[in-house]
Design a protein around this nucleic acid. Structure first.
Lengths: 200, 200
DNA sequence: CGTTGACTTTACACAGTGTAAATTTACACC
DNA sequence: GGTGTAAATTTACACTGTGTAAAGTCAACG
């Protein structure tokens, strides 16, 4: 399996990344990836036990390259619950397009491949933690309209990748509109207004 | 291809239906379906040109069996926009669990199969019409908060199958809670309250 | 100079889809 | 009863893609 960051391993990961990004969900063949990486198909199996694990490694590589942890932790800086909610939505919502190609592939594979399902499930569970934290902040402000569990579920759903895909890919919404709308929807769905809104 | 409703054809469709329902998204093999239908694998090809078309035919068969048209047209009876929105959400939202198994399969295949993508796209486009009609009703009442196009996109997304899947399958919400929440979210996201709400 | 590690090359087993053609079964009509 | 015909079955095969296996190349390192 060779060392964790051998140059060839990295080249393979980058090749997979590019291929999945240009063709989201289609699951490039091993031979395609090998070709793109400039190695033999068999070489892929020297670094990854199988196709699924290669793709899982690709998501992890992306997370590492982009520094998801840093990015999401910034949203924890916000003081009020509302600010924190917005910051989290912005952070994650703007992260989705960067990872969509690979993510979509894993989501599709999830249906038939147990390992893919497990890996993807864990990843989504991590994201849920972020939602839970934002909800907790709202709760501390006494702004929450629902039980924290349900509110987390709801935010988690609004920020799910299929929702992003539907609005931006299918409906053709620009990213900013997506972000703005999810913010509005989340705020309306989770919180109760702090004081009388636009009433006469 | 034999006649449209030969008994064997129906048996095959029912077999596919059952298999896809018990194992959503996994795309049963032709041999599995044949076995379940009690015919030879080759017989499937006498009735359907390929696996994709068999699954597409299965969704159409479901729609026919359940009478989607009737069901959705009932939501058109409601007078006010608000009532109509609720009726539509209830009709479609309660239809999803009935078709989920087969639908999920087609959604997964969509990524790799062009025919599946086209068929599924058309189906979702039909559903969008329903959303547009509900939005139009709200607009006539002057209750709409957004442009009709954007409101339709939003309702369409809230009522999408992945959203249902996320809340009921992943989060484990009971169907009624799903319906109630989507109603609330849609109302809040699309409309502006008719008069001053709970302001002091 | 020999060893070691990384990669290539060639070959193959296996699963699943779809094509093809010969054969069986059953029923319908004269 | 014999013939024709449609629906299925049976058998065989081509093709694609994954993953395994093993032998060979080649350069670096000691």
């Amino acid at each position: 399996m060779s060392s964790e960051n051998s140059p060839t391993r990295i080249r393979i990961l980058k090749a997979a990344w590019e291929l999945l990004e240009t063709n989201p969900g289609v699951a490039a063949r091993m031979s395609d990836i090998a070709k793109k990486a400039g190695v033999s198909r068999q070489a892929l199996y020297l670094h990854f036990p199988n196709r699924t694990e290669l793709f899982i490694a690709t998501t992890k590589y992306q997370d590492e390259m982009f520094g998801v942890q840093d990015m999401l932790s910034k949203s924890r800086a916000a003081t009020t619950g509302h600010e924190r909610l917005d910051a989290f939505i912005e952070a994650w919502g703007n992260y989705i397009p960067k990872i969509f190609g690979v993510a979509k592939t894993l989501m599709v594979m999830q249906a038939t491949d147990e390992d893919a399902a497990r890996a993807w499930g864990e990843r989504m569970q991590d994201m849920r933690e972020g939602c839970a934290a934002a909800v907790a902040a709202l709760d501390r402000d006494g702004a929450l309209n629902l039980d924290p569990e349900g509110a987390t579920d709801l935010l988690w759903t609004l920020l799910s990748i299929p929702t992003w895909e539907h609005l931006t890919q299918l409906c053709g919404w620009p990213q900013e509109r997506y972000i703005a709308t999810i913010k509005r929807l989340a705020l309306g769905g989770l919180t109760t207004p702090p004081h009388a809104p636009n009433a006469a």
